[in-house]
Structures are given as structure tokens and as C-alpha cells.
Design a protein around this nucleic acid. Structure first.
Length: 479
RNA sequence: GGUCCCGUAGCCAAGUGGUUAGGCAACGGAUUGCAAAUCCGUCUACCCCAGUUCGAUUCUGGGCGGGACCUCCA
């Protein structure tokens, strides 16, 4: 069975059929590094990560690029009133635009790490691809699809008949929107900037195209240049947040296809925006969370990842703190099950005769089928939890425990939201003094001195550990 | 104003024209010296109206309600 994905361009599900058999090229619109990454950003990025992981799980080799936008993304897509996001942040903080970009890029990478993202093969910075952008701009100018006014270069939308095919936007609507600022330089309000001139701008380059003026690139051209340079003129999958569909991706298609004369992307995928407490996340509503905010509340990266990944990317996901608590409990259920299997495998608990062969196959198949169906993570998780219930009840054999653990390891490889295989017993990780207390308690219990035993248990609890009294003996676990 | 999505048991959330999704919470039981942790069990829903159908939560139409995008945003 192939992987079926929803293509925003055709508005339908279609099979993933890479241009080169066995190799899937994917490009993801990455962060604009002007502020701390928030949980909405990471809903998109984790979607891209799960997509990549599952495609690899299905036996493909993936070539994955996620860019870092460190210049040219304006607060308003208009040369007169728009301000570069780096520059705006610079004005507010006193840091240079370059410092802002590097600071938040580092923070982004840190968040990727904390949320268990499998790093893309390339994470190019826009500022390091100015020459490649210039080559495209030069070609578009030569072809007459772009024009230069006062040094600013615009793409002439009227010269690209396919404009609007992704977003469904038509000229009349855009004009009726009346929110497009009037710009006398443009031939058409839809035309968008490829290169901008602004002497006050901190990030400047000599024009990388013929007869140009020193300036900086427009946002849209960046992705076209990096994508083409690193993955070639035609790629299999391109993702982004739903807001990217227009104008960003529409413009990417126009300039790239006008340049190459070939279809740019086979499958466009867009992640639905995250909601928080049932509504759009915004600073003014007080429901705006950065990744650091959530981790600062005591939730782990794993719990946050689970909460952001558990709903299919095209569904509105309502993020709540309660959802994080649910994630914590759900992860615990899976890990508890895995720990028991580890204990059976390692001979610490009595093994039975069930090798779980049929159950393992069924669980893997159900997981695969759900993921093949446009990354239905909820369905895939249901397959995992069904399997948990089965494994918990089964008198599992050593062979069965190994097989079951492989099922979980596979699910973890794709979703990465449960954590690594638990240790059979964390007791040995506890500080020596706690182990001493545990021994004392054992003795107290043997002497039926329950008052002393309970006091020791409280001491251990106060140190952040709990005693688990299992039939096979007492052990310690972190709380 | 234009485009689009959604409305499933206490909460979150899959899916299906006729057979128990799943998670969390709650409750009951097992276990325990008592607990904790854990496990097992119980909890059977599909916004309203009309239509199609032998049969609709699932298809069609209408209504109501919520949300998103069209503007910086993942």
C-alpha cells in the first residue's frame, strides 16, 4: 500500500510517487528567526518531522530541507510600509539584525532538539543563498516576467497564467480585498517583490543580478533558491503552515515555474493552525505559548511533542494545558507496558507462553494503515493503545516480549512521542542514601514495624522517588 | 464581503451506510500491613430538520452553532 497524502494543489488525496523511485525530496518552510519559537510553529515542524519519519519507515530514502528565514520577511508585504522582521526586532532590542537572526536560530535548533526532531539534512540560511536568488531574478528579468523600478524588482503576476492555482485566489477577489496597500511602483497590486532597495536596511548585498542596485531579497524568492539549489528544480513534497499557502507558496510556484518551465512541486501539504483554548493563539488573548513557556511549566519535551502530534495535521488541534496532562498519562501507560515487557525479557518477571505473534502483526498493520492514510496519527495511536491492552493481559513469553518491544520501538521510531525503551528497574539510578533507606524499610517491614516503614517511605518520597511494591520485591521509581 | 473547515459520549479525539476506535477523567475490582504505582472491568455517543435508503452518526439539501484563511503569522 502506498502512502496517501492530501495535496493542497489538487485538493485531493494522492499516492506519494517520488520522481526518483525510492527517494523522496521534501522541503519545509522553516522558521523566520525574529522571536522565540512558539508551540504553533512546532505543530507544523513536528508534522514535517513525522512525515519524514514515516516515509523513511516505509523504506524510502529522504532528502529533507528546512530553511531558516533570516532576512527579507517583512511585517507587511509592501515596500513602503513593510519592515523586515529582523530589523523590527533589532529596533526594539538594540541588537543588530544579524544578532537577532543568530540568537533565535540557535533557540530554534535547541527546541528541535528538545522536541526530538530528526534533523533535516539541510537547514540553509537565506542569507547564504543570495547568489542563487540572484541567478533566478536575473533569468526572470531576462524573460520579461519581472521588472525593475527604482532598483526594486517585482515579479509580474499577469505574466504567469497559473497564478492562484494553489490558493484559489483570483484577481477580482484580491482587488476586492482592498487590503493590499497601494504601491505606485507596481504594475499590478498582485505583483510581489523579488529584490528590495532600502539604504537603511542593515542586511545588504550588492545586487546578485545584472544591472541591479544594492539591496536585499524578498521573502518568497528565498525558498525557491534554496529548494532548487539543494533538491533540484522539481521536488516531491513541500510543506508549510496553512497561512503559507497564500501568498508565500503561490509566489514560490510562480517564480520557480516561470524560471524552470517545469512543475515545481508534486504534493503541497499544509498544516492546520493550532488553536489554544479553542481559539487562535495570540499574545493579546494571553494564550500565547513559546516552547520554552511550556517546558518552564514543568512539562517535558516529550509530553509537548505528544500533545502537538496526536491529532492529524489537517485537523484543527485544540491545545490546552489539560491536554498536556493527558499526554503525560497516556505516555505513562505505554511506558509502563514496555517496562513490564522489558522485565519479562530480562528474566525479572515470570514469563508465560504467549508469543504475541498475531497481535504484533495486527498492531503493526493497523499502525501502518492509519499512517498511510494521510498521516492519521490518532488512528495510529489507537493501534498502539489497543496493543498495550492486549500485551498487558497476555501471559507473554520472552520471545513475545521481544516482539512486542519491537512493535513499540517501531511506533516510537515514527512518532517519537513515547520515549526510549524504559529500563527494567531504575532502582540502581537512585542515590546511595535512598538505597540505604530502602534497605532499612525492607527490614522494618520484615519486623512488622510499619510505623518505621511508612516513615522511611515518606523520606524517599520527599526525595522525589516512590517505592513500588511488586510481588517480586520493592523497587524505586522517579516520580 | 469572498473562500474553507468543523459540530461524536464528562473532556480530547478516530472512523464507518448495518458489526465495541483510542486516550484522559470518573466509578468498581485485583494487588498491598495500609498506601502509592500498576493492572483488569464498567461507562456505547455521533447538533437540529427534511430527503435518499430495507437501514444514516456516516450520503444530499436546509438550518443553527463554533472556528480558520483572505493582512504579519507555522
Amino acid at each position: 500500500m502506498p502512502i496517501r497524502l492530501y495535496n493542497s494543489l489538487t485538493r485531493s488525496l494522492q499516492d506519494l510517487e517520488p520522481r526518483t523511485p525510492g527517494v523522496v525530496t521534501m522541503y519545509h518552510c522553516g522558521p523566520t528567526v525574529y522571536s522565540s519559537p512558539h508551540i504553533g510553529n512546532f505543530r507544523s515542524f513536528l508534522f514535517a518531522d513525522v512525515l519524514r519519519r514515516f516515509v523513511e519507515d516505509q523504506g524510502y530514502r529522504v532528502q529533507q530541507v528546512m530553511n531558516v528565514t533570516d532576512v527579507g520577511h517583512l511585517t507587511n508585504d509592501d515596500i513602503e510600509s513593510g519592515e523586515d522582521k529582523m530589523e523590527a526586532a533589532s529596533r526594539k532590542t538594540g541588537l543588530t539584525a544579524w544578532d537577532i537572526a543568530r540568537k533565535y536560530e540557535a533557540e530554534f535548533h535547541d527546541c528541535q532538539h528538545k522536541l526530538f526532531v530528526r534533523l533535516p539534512h539541510h537547514m540553509p540560511r537565506a542569507t547564504e543563498y543570495i547568489a542563487q536568488m540572484g541567478a533566478i531574478i536575473d533569468d526572470l528579468l531576462q524573460k520579461g516576467v519581472a521588472y525593475q523600478t527604482n532598483g526594486n524588482v517585482y515579479f509580474e503576476v499577469a505574466r504567469f497564467p497559473g497564478y492562484g492555482k494553489l490558493s484559489g485566489k483570483v484577481l477580482e477577489e484580491l482587488e476586492a480585498g482592498a487590503r493590499v496597500a497601494v504601491n505606485e511602483e507596481k504594475k499590478d497590486p498582485r505583483d510581489f517583490a523579488l529584490w528590495k532597495v532600502d539604504p537603511k536596511h542593515q542586511m545588504q548585498w550588492d545586487a546578485p543580478f545584472r544591472s541591479g542596485v544594492r539591496g536585499f531579497p524578498g521573502w518568497h524568492i528565498e525558498c525557491s533558491a534554496m529548494s532548487m539549489q539543494l533538491l533540484g528544480p522539481q521536488i516531491d513534497v513541500h510543506t508549510g503552515g496553512e497561512d503559507n499557502m497564500f501568498p508565500h507558496h503561490e509566489c514560490e510556484i510562480a517564480q520557480t515555474e516561470a524560471h524552470t518551465g517545469k512543475p515545481f512541486v508534486t504534493i503541497w501539504m499544509h498544516a492546520r493552525h493550532l488553536l489554544v483554548d479553542g481559539t487562535k493563539m495570540s499574545k493579546s488573548l494571553g494564550n500565547f505559548f513559546t516552547v520554552a513557556d511550556i517546558l518552564g511549566k514543568g512539562y517535558s519535551g516529550l509530553e509537548l511533542r505528544y500533545a502537538l502530534v496526536r491529532v492529524q495535521y489537517r485537523q484543527a488541534l485544540n491545545f490546552t494545558l489539560k491536554g498536556l496532562d493527558e499526554a503525560r498519562a497516556a505516555i505513562g501507560r505505554v511506558q509502563q507496558c514496555r517496562q513490564r515487557l522489558v522485565r519479562v525479557r530480562d528474566g525479572l518477571e515470570r514469563a508465560g507462553a504467549d508469543d504475541l505473534a498475531a497481535a504484533c502483526t495486527a498492531a503493526n498493520d493497523a499502525f501502518t494503515a492509519a499512517m498511510q492514510d494521510d498521516l492519521n496519527v490518532s488512528g495510529a495511536l489507537a493501534a498502539v493503545f489497543d496493543f498495550v491492552a492486549l500485551a498487558n493481559k497476555a501471559p507473554v513469553s520472552v520471545t513475545g516480549a521481544k516482539a512486542a518491544l519491537a512493535v513499540f520501538a517501531r511506533a516510537e521510531d515514527v512518532l517519537a512521542c513515547f520515549g526510549p525503551e524504559p529500563k527494567a528497574d531504575a532502582t540502581s539510578d537512585a542515590p546511595a542514601e535512598l538505597l540505604a533507606l530502602l534497605e532499612q524499610r525492607k527490614a522494618a517491614k520484615k519486623n512488622k514495624d510499619f510505623a518505621a516503614a511508612d516513615r522511611l517511605r515518606d523520606q524517599i518520597a520527599a526525595a522525589g522517588w516512590r517505592i513500588v511494591d511488586a510481588p517480586t520485591g520493592a523497587r524505586l521509581e522517579r516520580t
